[in-house]
Write a protein that binds this DNA or RNA. Structure first.
Lengths: 213, 213
DNA sequence: TTTAAAAAAGGACATTTGTCTCGATTAAAT
DNA sequence: ATTTAATCGAGACAAATGTCCTTTTTTAAA
């Protein structure tokens, strides 16, 4: 669920160090700031150096669907550069984010001239297809409780904490359903509650856990 | 829903004509034949020259999820070649299929040496990400009826006919739900029934339509 | 054409999920 | 510390979906 690509990041780090004249800058985004807006035209791609962002589609019915959480080394805006389209998703910083900003012409010439970069990009796109497909299948065919459990465990493993709203949007469900399933999981004891407290920063969780003892 | 990539196909057609010595063959698959099995190791990629295939994931709970229907010019097995993994999906011929068979080494060397090919591949992967993401979002956030309606219209536009089982698997629902929504759509008159008859070859459809008049 | 077997459709009920709302909990202000 | 405002959780009901099983329709055989 939190995608990263450290190989890609090292490449860019190195490339910047070796090509100081290149037209690459670093930008900082405050937590919550939406640095890419769905439907807009952009002229840069971004590579996350630090922090976590969420990439999400806002549907016309007002609902959001989180495509992925993006961490170190993840690229954003490359589809738009390759296919010359307006932004497919919104991208917002979840915590403070630092990202490389690379203008489209430089990005496209890198693809044209640097084989290593192209290979890395092909790898990145492949991974994305695999993850998106696998996840779509999983979420359509399994019960919510199962999907949520998997999500919670992933979160515990990766030591990150994500708001309930965002988790619900990631699962494509309402917060009400999220709460319901969460409670079921805790009641059944399918998820170790000590892990739980560190992972989810839920105000009422302590009380909930007390009551359930 | 039926993906095609005619540019890609022309490239391969041309490449084959110009490089007769190259290690590329044409294979035919009968309707229904599953030419790629999830979890298996493969050493070729396939490019569909003619016919329609379905690419689907079989989950452990016995359910299938159709990722996409693939038509002319679509590639299969390239993710496996790029990431050196076993097959992510099953791929089965829906009608008779003819496909180019390209060994992994040749595929990888094309990426390495032929810029045009690499560009086409990047375009193909990008399109796939866009479509998979858009669809996942759509199917999670809209009602089934809405998704089904969209699917039926697409099918009518592209003049193809797909079995109910496959459509249900594509939507990630049971055939029962599919039937239910279908009836609703017909009753409400949201879908032009004349289009309908040509698209869906459903045994009972004529009667259904009679009764509903 | 009639009958038997196979396949598809739909009814009934259970389960899941969403919406709306109200009560409880937390945070903020004084 | 007390009051007020804002946020969050969950009950109640409605809508959607799945499962199981019966009925209907189609196909195949005699």
């Amino acid at each position: 669920m939190l995608r990263t690509n450290l190989t890609f990041l090292s490449f860019i780090d190195r490339f910047c160090a070796e090509n100081e004249e290149a037209d690459i800058t670093l930008k900082n985004f405050k937590a919550g700031y939406r640095f890419i807006e769905q439907g807009e035209k952009i002229s840069n791609i971004y590579i996350i150096k630090d922090g976590i962002s969420k990439c999400f589609i806002s549907e016309e019915n007002g609902k959001d669907f989180i495509i992925e959480f993006l961490g170190k080394g993840e690229v954003v805006g490359e589809l738009e550069a390759l296919k010359k389209i307006t932004c497919l998703c919104n991208v917002a910083a979840i915590n403070d984010v630092m990202a490389y900003v690379i203008p489209h012409p430089l990005f496209l010439s890198l693809i044209d001239k640097n084989n290593e970069f192209t290979t890395l990009l092909l790898q990145e796109l492949s991974t994305r297809i695999i993850q998106t497909s696998t996840r779509a299948s999983f979420q359509q065919l399994y019960t919510l409780e199962y999907a949520l459990l998997k999500l919670l465990k992933l979160q515990a493993d990766e030591h990150i904490s994500i708001s309930k709203e965002d988790m619900a949007a990631y699962l494509g469900i309402s917060v009400r359903s999220f709460n319901r399933s969460l409670k079921q999981i805790v009641i059944k004891g399918d998820f170790d509650t000590s892990e739980f407290k560190n992972t989810l920063q839920l105000a009422n969780m302590k009380k909930l856990l007390e009551r359930l003892k």
